[in-house]
Design a binder for these strands. Structure first.
Lengths: 209, 209
DNA sequence: CCTGTGCAGTAACAAAAGTTACATAGGGTA
DNA sequence: TACCCTATGTAACTTTTGTTACTGCACAGG
């Protein structure tokens, strides 16, 4: 675990903090598709993402769903921080986009470190800031863009986190994450294909530019 | 200033911290309609709202605008915190909804206090959490609700922060804050009036239930 | 009292998104 | 090969939202 943790966090934390993390953290592997956090769940540990990608979703009362953002190596979920520190239920759902590993830190430790390590404070604040700014871009997408533009942003984001220009999702899955219907997605994808921006295949979409 | 500050913050900060705040903060009055923060502006001081209401808006590249949330007594703007700590430009605009007063704290102090006072840390984190959860409800509104429901939520929120069931806004102003057009708002307001939920007058809207 | 200006009401139409229904195609399996 | 299941394509229609254009009304200032 030493090496993984160091690789992901040694540039931001001082050695003493890394040592402390090592001594209290428990590693947890996860697989693509795992539901890591459900809405309404209490969070008792703070997760540090060591590798892999996690997607964060918001859910409606009825059954709509919306992708908020992705977490990558070196990230932590500010929503989870919020839950830990505020001792409230999770407002979001977290699902593994790929296989990966997290280190779980007990809440008491993470509070202790806030007073003790400046690098930890900086890390926690920059996580919050990153999340706020991702929420803002989610809001921009929803408030100011039409579905075709949102879809294209989605495809690009997806390609980026998976480091591949081929997106392995069905139209139905995309529709869920953008909170719309399959027919709408098929329609808009076809239009994007006609514009030469993507290439459609069964179960996959290739981003051409 | 002593009394105002104490009234707003004495329940959450210890006396020593209040003293420190008093010694370094500069008070600033503002009037309804004042543009307190513009997008792209750097923030060098952290504002603590002592009384009054401030509205926080997000703006589009082109010229669309969207109300994100209101700040009230005892609040601070986490977006501003983000700017201070991250030393980045403001991503939002802040406009005074009513007259009021803020205490401005130099950034160096607020960082110092993070290590020194637990109550300050708690305050800062709970501000972040509050903001994240307001952003989430903004997202819920945009993603899962139709315009009529968003409008009603808007009216209720507005009535709440102004402590009055009479909302003094033109249809045009409401349209700006919901990022839609005046005609759409007029149409939906009329529908709400027909349902007996509101009463329309020139320049004001009365919320009946 | 007249008039200009800004606000609100409304019709008519356009565009975007959502819905229903059905056709077809790919790929695995009996 | 025949069959089935799932994914995708598409037409036809509805609802919601956005746009343009015009009307009438209230109020302030001359």
């Amino acid at each position: 675990m030493n090496e993984l943790l160091k690789e992901a966090y040694s540039t931001i934390f001082e050695p003493k903090l890394i040592e402390e993390i090592e001594s209290v953290a428990t590693l947890m592997d996860f697989n693509e598709g795992d539901h890591l956090i459900e809405i309404g769940q209490y969070i008792r540990q703070m997760p540090l993402l060591i590798n892999g990608v996690i997607k964060i979703l918001r859910e409606d009362r009825t059954e709509g769903e919306l992708l908020l953002y992705f977490l990558e190596k070196g990230d932590t979920c500010a929503m989870t921080l919020a839950c830990c520190l505020g001792d409230t239920k999770s407002e979001i759902r977290a699902i593994a986009e790929t296989n990966g590993t997290v280190a779980m830190i007990p809440i008491t430790k993470m509070e202790e470190w806030l007073g003790k390590y400046k690098s930890w404070r900086n890390f926690v604040f920059s996580s919050y800031n990153k999340r706020l700014s991702e929420m803002l871009s989610a809001i921009d997408n929803l408030a100011f863009m039409k579905m075709d533009e949102r879809l294209l942003n989605y495809l690009r984001e997806k390609a980026k986190v998976n480091r591949s220009s081929v997106i392995a999702n069905t139209h139905q899955e995309i529709a869920y994450e953008l909170n719309t219907s399959r027919v709408v997605i098929s329609r808009l994808l076809k239009a994007l294909e006609n514009e030469g921006i993507i290439k459609l295949n069964r179960n996959t979409i290739e981003l051409l530019k």
